[in-house]
């Protein structure tokens, strides 16, 4: 018996699977986005609006990861977009091998954008690399501007923060500037988009960023 020092992350195998998946998708011109948020933040509503706004400009597919039910996938299919419901079987997040298996079942079209709607929570989805090219998180206005202080990892890991339900601003004491300042303190390069998927406010900026990042990331290979 010998002692071997490893100092390796427990999830190192997942990181390797994620890297491989990212490369494979890029070769097929498929942009995968890991969309993370708490339950009820408006992920499906945001995606639905994005699909409608980008009709003709981008082909969008959605993988809905939940512990159970088909309600989200049905809402997306009603818009004519392709979707698949993934049941995590009680697991509170998606990892790279679960994502790869779901993508194989889904059969993502070349050139498309695929949103992975991760399980609704702000904790462990931030810890597992799914193989996505971009991590986007949603914070809805009723959740409060203190969330970057409570769930720092999620904010530190994300490429973009979408603040949803801005149309409800008159009814909540949400300090947008404080939320932005706290998120930027954790992650100076995070892009922040305050939006309302209901009124369309701010959606253009988010969609423009999404399309430009797609162009940039998919050009690299």
């Amino acid at each position: 018996m010998k002692v071997i020092e490893l100092n390796k992350k427990a999830t190192a195998a997942n990181d390797r699977d994620a890297e491989e998946l990212r490369r494979k998708l890029q070769a097929r011109d498929v942009l995968l986005i890991n969309l993370m948020s708490a339950a009820g933040s408006g992920k499906t509503t945001l995606i639905s609006r994005t699909i409608r706004d980008l009709e003709g400009k981008a082909s969008i597919g959605v993988m809905e990861a939940d512990l159970a039910s088909e309600v989200d996938a049905e809402a997306i299919e009603a818009l004519g977009a392709r979707s698949i419901q993934v049941h995590t079987g009680g697991c509170c997040h998606m990892d790279a091998s679960m994502t790869r298996q779901s993508l194989e079942a889904f059969g993502a079209e070349s050139g498309s954008i695929v949103f992975l709607e991760n399980v609704g929570n702000l904790i462990c989805p931030a810890e597992f690399d799914t193989g996505a090219h971009l991590k986007v998180m949603i914070l809805s206005l009723p959740e409060g501007d203190d969330k970057p202080l409570k769930y720092p990892l999620m904010f530190a890991e994300s490429d973009a923060l979408i603040i949803t339900k801005m149309d409800a601003a008159p009814y909540f004491d949400f300090d947008l500037e404080a939320a932005k300042r706290r998120a930027l303190a954790l992650n100076p390069s995070i892009k922040i988009f305050p939006v309302s998927a209901k009124t369309g406010e701010g959606m253009g900026e988010w969609e423009e960023w999404l399309m430009s990042r797609k162009k940039e990331l998919m050009r690299k290979h």
């Binding site: 018996m1 071997i4 202080l149």
Partner: peptide
């Protein structure tokens, strides 16, 4: 917790304590 015991600010960040690292193994 989240509030600094010295100046009572809430602008505080975790430095360490969130890890899960394989330090070493004994094997043959």
């Amino acid at each position: 917790g989240r509030e600094c015991p010295y100046c009572h600010s809430g602008e505080t960040w975790l430095v360490q304590g969130n890890e899960c690292v394989i330090k070493e193994i004994e094997a043959e």
